[in-house]
Design a protein around this nucleic acid. Structure first.
Lengths: 334, 334
DNA sequence: CTGAAAGCGCTAACAG
DNA sequence: CTGTTAGCGCTTTCAG
């Protein structure tokens, strides 16, 4: 063998093998315009034989788009975000674009690293669910469009798509009150999170307006802390009669605790969660929830990103998507 | 302004601004060895001011690794695969590597496109859950290591990590028989899938060996087809007394149908599923399942990939991970 | 310690 | 229709 065989074939290798110039090969791999049928065939044959694939790196060096967008979410395992990722994927596919997926784990430091790594890869755009302490300066120099979803980016006018957290929490609380509950416990974690704050505020505003006691446990994270919090409020003379869960998993934890303690839902205590979840309707009783339009939010964000990439203006504001109260019986409805 | 300000700053821009040569800037961004403290400071300042980030594209043109691996899964929304993706992410992060995530939707054609797109981006390695008809030739010329998980790659000796589908199905069926069930219906979809076939075979082998009737509905896909299949086998004189579900979602569908039809689990019909799922233990009754070690499988695959990338040999075979029977009561256990 | 220059794989003029 | 050539942004000798 006369040539080096070990490395990946380059355009020039194809050119030599086909006995043509580099430009001709370039023409072929870019649609084959202005190339004679014979040459075309020769080049395509050479491409096949060598197993040649053009290098995206070289292309983007020449200024081409990378056909790659970045997506940073807290966790891929979280159903909310994996559903969002799937929807974004789909939109990206429609635009023949790949998704570089990064997980921030809600850690600002990691988020910074991921953003840096994505910038170095010259992504065409970025979709981001920022941590509570995202670095506003990071994207200052960014030459690509950025869209946030689920949470806004601090201190900077990044277009954002999210659910109406405040309104949803209000609707939830009003629903409980309407059904006759008066001692409503709000449990939530991740106090610094934008979404949590909005939801807590929505809940509290309604409680205050109704003149009911404001009961909250906002440092609940996992099953154990949920159980501890509930036990505290299910004992004594001033028992709660309803629970409003700020987050997905907390609803499940609360459900488990109530079952375990043999407390009837909704007879003794009503249960209402923010965010729908798989099997919420298969539990006993089925759990009422505020449902966010996850897929719509994610698709919207992705579509806005691609529009911006195509230089269509999408505005700078915050797009709030309506949430939906899904009543299933855990609040004594119907 | 004397220079073009619109585009992303390049190394040379930094060099000019700092009044040094290109090589010096290169040294700085690569650890700053052999650079005087003064020069270092000057260059770093220039980098800050310009918001400079080295171009990964240019680097990999020079032969550097892309620090990017590809991951192709059927769907990001599927809990099994999103859990796997999360685990792979984590391993990648430990190796300072990003993940290009692509979804094949189990379509061979799409899979081919995604592989091509990944090859063009010169990924350092690929993790793949292949479709049933993956193109064996696609990876022929690939110059990067490939590891499969959950399913093997046809016709090619790609190292693969997967669960013991056959053994799991056997264990499941034996468990049902041990608990006294004799008319066991096996429902499953995606017949062409490797995992499905193994599971069906494991089930059938045990049924045959026990001299029991082999009852199967292997074209069940969604809720409706599940209901139709079950209705067929829950009527008439020859009723089934147990259901073994080949896949995750089918277990949930079957559970829903049984509840709806007010058929007692496990008193009238036992239910056992392959693959654990969130809230399986919160249903009424809690559902027994065969649990695959998702995270372990994914981590293992990722670790093998990185080992191969570091030229450590990992063998060519198939690594089968033990599955676990989780008994929760839906088969009349205990 | 520092800079000049070659070249990685490709595309885009520009000649022929 | 086709080939030559000049970079894109970086790393890497090789001189200074």
């Amino acid at each position: 063998m006369t040539k080096k065989t070990a490395s990946v074939p380059a355009l020039m290798d194809v050119a030599r093998r086909a006995g043509v110039g580099a430009a001709t090969v370039s023409r072929v791999i870019n649609g084959g315009q202005n190339v004679s049928t014979k040459t075309l065939a020769k080049v395509q044959a050479a491409i096949q034989e060598l197993g040649y694939h053009p290098s995206q790196a070289a292309r983007s060096l020449k200024g081409a788009k990378t056909k790659t967008i970045g997506l940073i979410i807290p966790s891929v395992a979280d159903p909310f975000f994996s559903a969002a990722a799937a929807a974004i994927q789909e939109v990206a596919l429609e635009h023949e674009t790949l998704v570089l997926l990064a997980a921030s784990d809600n850690q600002p430091a990691r988020e910074r690293e991921q953003i840096t790594a994505l910038i170095q890869r010259r992504i065409d755009g970025l979709i981001l669910a920022p941590t509570y302490a995202a670095e506003p300066t990071m994207l200052q120099h960014a030459k690509f469009p950025v869209i946030c979803f689920d949470r806004p980016f601090p201190d900077k006018a990044v277009p954002t798509v999210l659910a109406d957290n405040y309104g949803g929490a209000k609707a939830a609380t009003e629903h409980l009150i309407r059904n006759g509950y008066e001692r409503i416990l709000c449990i939530g974690g991740d106090a610094p999170l934008f979404t949590s704050q909005k939801r807590v505020k929505g809940h509290r505003d309604v409680i205050r307006a109704a003149g009911l006691p404001y009961l909250a446990e906002l440092n609940v994270q996992d099953y154990l802390s949920t159980r501890a919090a509930l036990d505290r409020h299910l004992a004594g003379r001033q028992k709660i009669d309803a629970i409003f869960c700020i987050k997905n998993e907390l609803t499940v934890h609360a459900y488990r605790v109530l079952r375990e303690r043999r407390i009837a839902i909704p007879r003794s205590v009503a249960l209402l969660g923010f965010d729908d979840f798989e099997l919420a309707d298969a539990l006993e009783p089925p759990i009422s929830v505020i449902r966010q339009p996850v897929v719509e939010i994610a698709r919207k964000a992705a579509e806005m990103l691609f529009k911006t990439m195509e230089h269509e203006s999408v505005g700078k504001g915050m797009i709030t998507m309506r949430v939906e109260l899904v009543t299933r019986g855990s609040c004594g409805e119907q």
